Computed example of a mutant assay.
Amino acid sequence: MQGILDPGWASPPAEGEAIAADLPAGLGALEMIEGAGHYPHVQLPRQTLAAVLNFLGRA
């Protein structure tokens, strides 16, 4: 999970995709949180929780 506005990366989606691609298949998934920066769990906790629950529901 990553905020689309994360100032630490030139392209937050590209960075997140690269990290997710390095994980074993099925272990993770990239979820970009619109309107959040580096701390989506603090900035937009409801959206972050919804993404986490969605991911856990896939198992």
Rank of each mutant, 00 (worst) to 15 (best):
G26H: 10
I33S: 10
H38G: 07
A51Y: 07
G16P: 14
A51P: 12
M32W: 05
A51N: 14
A10W: 00
E15Y: 13
L49R: 13
G16S: 03
E34A: 15
A29T: 09
P40C: 06
A29V: 09
I4W: 11
G57K: 05
A21D: 12
P13N: 09
M1Q: 15
G35F: 11
D22R: 14
T48I: 07
A14H: 05
L23S: 06
S11F: 01
D6Y: 00
G26I: 02
L56E: 10
I19D: 05
R58D: 00
A18R: 14
G8M: 15
A18H: 02
L44M: 12
P24K: 00
Q2K: 05
A50H: 09
G37V: 03
M32C: 07
I4H: 08
W9N: 08
G28T: 02
A25S: 05
G3I: 01
A29H: 07
L56Y: 06
L5H: 14
P45R: 02
I33L: 15
Q2E: 09
T48W: 15
I33N: 05
A50L: 07
A20R: 05
P13W: 05
P45C: 13
L30V: 04
L30D: 01
P24D: 15
G26K: 06
L5D: 15
L56W: 06
L44V: 05
E34I: 03
A50V: 07
L23R: 05
Q47M: 13
P24Q: 04
P24I: 00
Q2T: 13
G57V: 08
R58E: 00
L49F: 03
P24T: 04
N54M: 06
E31I: 04
L27M: 09
G35I: 13
A10R: 15
Y39N: 13
L56P: 04
A10L: 08
Q43I: 07
V52S: 07
G35L: 15
D22P: 02
Y39C: 09
I33A: 11
P24R: 01
P12R: 13
I33K: 14
L56T: 02
H41T: 03
G28M: 11
A51S: 12
F55G: 10
L5N: 15
L56M: 13
Q2A: 10
A20V: 15
H41N: 11
A21H: 04
L44W: 05
P7W: 04
L23C: 14
P12F: 02
R58V: 01
E17P: 12
P45F: 03
Q43C: 11
V42P: 11
I4V: 13
L56F: 07
A50E: 11
V42N: 14
L23Q: 09
L23G: 05
N54C: 09
D6M: 08
I19Y: 10
A59N: 09
A59E: 11
Q2H: 07
T48L: 06
Q47C: 12
G35H: 01
P12A: 03
A21F: 03
D6R: 00
L27S: 08
M1F: 01
R58H: 03
L49W: 02
D22N: 06
L5V: 00
I4T: 10
L23P: 09
Q43G: 10
A51Q: 07
Y39D: 05
S11T: 04
V42C: 08
L53A: 10
L30M: 10
A51L: 13
P12H: 07
L56C: 13
G8N: 03
L27V: 12
L27W: 10
A18N: 11
P13H: 08
A36H: 02
